[in-house]
Design a protein around this nucleic acid. Structure first.
Lengths: 261, 261
DNA sequence: CGGGACGTTGAAATACGTCAAACGCGGTGG
DNA sequence: CCACCGCGTTTGACGTATTTCAACGTCCCG
């Protein structure tokens, strides 16, 4: 398993990167000036981020690795609501468990949280960036509902990979069409609500169609437009990391997936 | 189709009811004193609540009827993220459509929205009640993810009905074990991510097991504890509308659904 | 007495889950 | 260096939950 980054960003750096991508340069400037690295520590895979309602560090900035909001149910079933990627601010969530899915590094971000709630004029850009980020989170969660409720296995997987690519690209952790994803297929299956076996077969089918390459913790999406058409993917980001698509592949939307009321 | 309420609550009334159930009596008092009925109007079924980004009335209080956050996808597929019930405050959501699922009455609540964002001391209870309510909304959305991702058809339906019962009970629109639900089976199937046909069969199976009665727009849950055990339902509310369960049916949890890691 | 929307039913197709075994691979210890 | 282990991936065969299609029933309303 390849770790998601070899060298470490500073906490302020990765968040600033993100706010800049969100077109909130003022918030980025504020955040870059903050010391978000005073307290940092690591977690092994499968550790709780907020063990037993520990009120110390009510907010943490995810520096590297992947965290998931996990719910366990009877019969050993497990559902992962949503992935938390580097640059995300982690906060305890009632009912579910925030669990590291890989090795993870975090830093204390409680100072950040208090400033998000600050109603002062100087922190206004910060607050607004935070709110915009929360809105995006919500949109991602709703996309997850649609994936699980109404999409086929192939669509679910393609959609999730495209979304993850965009989220990582936003913080500079993805190339044009690839990104590290050091998760086991079992973990991914618990995101998309499939069995491991069927996820495996779905991945192979996508590979066979030339839509996805995956292995050794790294994912490549050789033809994002085609994959997006297949999965009905719509970006939740103002696509800041690339102004526009060059290729005119819009018409490649195969009839099979054309909009039909 | 039975309308969800014959007589109308005043807008302030229904919201106050809700805040009281949330143990936020101060917020309830503030809200009860507001005039939230200045502008009210009705919608027919299948109308958009916020047509074409109309910025007039950026927030509306749902007085009666049911609204859904709907996403349409290719092949005529449809997913309803979440039901909006009387007492909910409606706000435009990016990407999806807020659509009336029954006849609906709403009132303008933009004044309410501005006060929710007020950072003054006197509006603090209001703001906190609003935030608590938003947290509950999020929890409900996460429950929806789990339903769709990892639950069987019967569990999905039972879970949804229990949740809806609690939400309606909170605003005084449910009896001890029944509530109006004037939705088509097709609509319900688009919430729980099943085909109409299979939803129908699932409902019949639940009826046969004595867990659900449904028909003519009204649902009865004769044995909520047993249904909750079957569906793995956990309340997202501080159960203010009933201090404790009388019956000691906890052990009725059949082995088939016992917790297993 | 239609007509339309909604509910119900059956038969056949299929997508997905389960079970169990084998495979590959990096790591560890002899 | 090889043998072995553990973990994750892959494969096959089979079972089942759910979908699809198509028909029929029912209720309500004009």
């Amino acid at each position: 398993m390849i770790s998601i980054v070899k060298h470490s960003f500073s906490g302020g750096d990765i968040l600033a990167r993100r706010f800049r991508a969100m077109r909130a340069p003022e918030a980025a400037a504020i955040v870059a000036s903050l010391n978000l690295d005073a307290q940092r520590w690591s977690l092994d895979p499968s550790e709780e981020v907020f063990p037993q309602a520990t009120t110390t560090h009510p907010a943490q900035l995810l520096l590297s690795g992947i965290v998931g909001e996990v719910r366990l149910l009877s019969h050993g079933r497990r559902q992962i609501m949503m992935l938390r990627l580097p640059g995300d601010v982690l906060t305890p969530v009632g009912g579910d468990t925030l669990m590291s899915l890989t090795a993870v590094r975090v830093s204390d971000a409680s100072s950040l949280l208090t400033r998000f709630g600050n109603w002062s004029a100087e922190d206004r850009p910060l607050r607004e960036a935070w709110m915009a980020s929360s809105r995006t989170d919500l949109a991602i969660l709703r996309d997850q509902v649609v994936r699980l409720g109404r999409m086929s296995a192939a669509e679910r997987v393609g959609h999730l990979l495209l979304e993850t690519h965009e989220r990582l690209a936003q913080v500079g952790l993805a190339t044009d069409n690839g990104f590290p994803l050091p998760l086991t297929q079992e973990t991914i299956s618990d995101i998309v609500g499939l069995s491991v076996v069927h996820l495996n077969r779905t991945l192979q089918s996508l590979k066979h169609d030339g839509l996805v390459q995956a292995g050794r913790g790294y994912v490549t999406l050789p033809d994002r437009p085609r994959l997006a058409a297949m999965a009905g993917y719509v970006s939740r980001f103002p696509m800041p990391w690339r102004p526009a698509e060059r290729r005119s592949e819009t018409r490649q939307t195969s009839a099979r997936y054309a909009q039909a009321s």
